[in-house]
Write a protein that binds this DNA or RNA. Structure first.
Lengths: 238, 238
DNA sequence: CGGCAGTTTGATGTTACTCAATTTAAGTGG
DNA sequence: CCACTTAAATTGAGTAACATCAAACTGCCG
């Protein structure tokens, strides 16, 4: 029997934050006799889920699909700050703040769970596994933000795109089984642009170059990495 | 008697993280009979304090001077991720990780305190004020990183520089008394460049424009904001 | 006074953006 | 399954923003 098992409700493995919150889904892992999760919700493709400035009594975990966190200027310019994958908290540190300092949008049809912030905070005080999971999420988000800052501030368009491909494929690979350097990768070029600080037109040009060079190709929601070594050479932080 | 008092050892007020850690500096705020802080250290201008990849049993609080956190590519390109001001933890989330994912360098002569990570973690479990202080730091760092990502990804050189000036002056103003829109601002243009993802040459050009427009001037370690309204219009996130 | 780091300025180059037109792909309803 | 609609991707031409290189200038410290 595996020591980790997907949740029958949300298909998230115990290893993720959701799994820890749900406590391996056994009956005794409830708060005051109620399930610790509040409810599940669904959002359609491109639907806005949360907006900066909102206050919310909940924290959120993504259970199905992809979404992203972003910030936006008053004139509409927007920057994606992080993609949210299966099992991700929308934001780890937002457990500590009522008012949201970011917005979240669905990339495709998604499902997510809401947990009452107070319940989670209460459980957190007594649950070492949950503390560890939260700490890990905080670290990962901080590392991710720092590396993205480095990419946006100091790297060329090619390097940025290679970097985000590598970063995301590694995150995918950590939670899924991947075969043959092919990744389910539902981003459109506009999303790559919004993440890398480039325009969609320029992303298209760079991806054409990557394709012609036999480096990788993105289409139909699949990322095909043909030359992982070279991609790593261009995009790696090391 | 004020409810907040500068630490006689490090001049940090109780309101900062250091103050909470030291617990208003009263005798009973010690761990196992020892002062909770490990020791104080000094670094000279431009001295490297911590390097990415190091492991450390300590967390660090800045007690005097300015420093900055940065990331760097193997070819030397570097991006400043956050400036560290009086009372700042070098990194809030690094309380949860032994291995550092960032480097720290002194901007000028600095003094900082080391605290054993284990001791702090232990104190954290029992001390609600410390929990709150840590949570606040985590949020503030996350907000700062997000806004900087937005600036680097989507804003022009002028906007970025106006933004970092505003952001830093607000942080300074939060901990000091400021008179007449003059800020002690020990950054050199190269640091502004390293923070904004620009070159020092281009920063120089933009600052010349700002000066000629009567917007603000940076020299001799002083930032003089002559037209706060206009600076806000250019640099604000709102 | 000399040396050095930082700043300024000019000339030139490159990268990525903008605008616009065209092609391709993805849905949608009959 | 096809015609229609709409969104996304591609391509080209022209441009703007910022980088690079190099030289001159400034201020500071020993």
């Amino acid at each position: 029997m595996p020591d980790s098992w997907p949740c029958n409700a949300c298909s998230v493995r115990d290893a993720g934050f959701c799994g820890v919150l749900l406590g391996r889904h056994s009956a005794e892992n409830r708060l005051r006799g109620q399930p610790v999760w509040q409810d599940f919700r669904v959002a359609r493709p491109n639907e806005s889920i949360l907006a900066r400035g909102d206050t919310s009594e909940h924290v959120y975990v993504l259970c199905e699909g992809w979404a992203f966190r972003f910030l936006q200027l008053s004139d509409g310019r927007r920057q994606i700050v992080r993609f949210l994958l299966l099992g991700d908290l929308f934001s780890a540190v937002s457990l500590f703040a009522e008012r949201l300092h970011f917005s979240v949008q669905a990339l495709m049809q998604v499902r997510f769970a809401r947990f009452r912030r107070r319940d989670v905070a209460e459980k957190l005080a007594a649950d070492a596994a949950l503390q560890t999971a939260l700490a890990t999420s905080c670290i990962e988000e901080d590392v991710g933000a720092g590396e993205l800052l480095l990419a946006l501030g100091r790297r060329s368009a090619e390097e940025r795109i290679a970097y985000v491909f590598l970063h995301l494929t590694k995150r995918i690979a950590a939670s899924n089984v991947i075969r043959e350097n092919r990744y389910s990768f539902p981003l459109r070029q506009q999303h790559v642009a919004a993440l890398t600080g480039l325009t969609a037109v320029h992303v298209s040009r760079v991806l054409t170059i990557f394709r012609d060079r036999g480096l990788c190709r993105l289409s139909g929601g699949i990322l095909d990495v043909e030359d992982p070594v070279e991609l790593e050479r261009i995009g790696s932080v090391k």
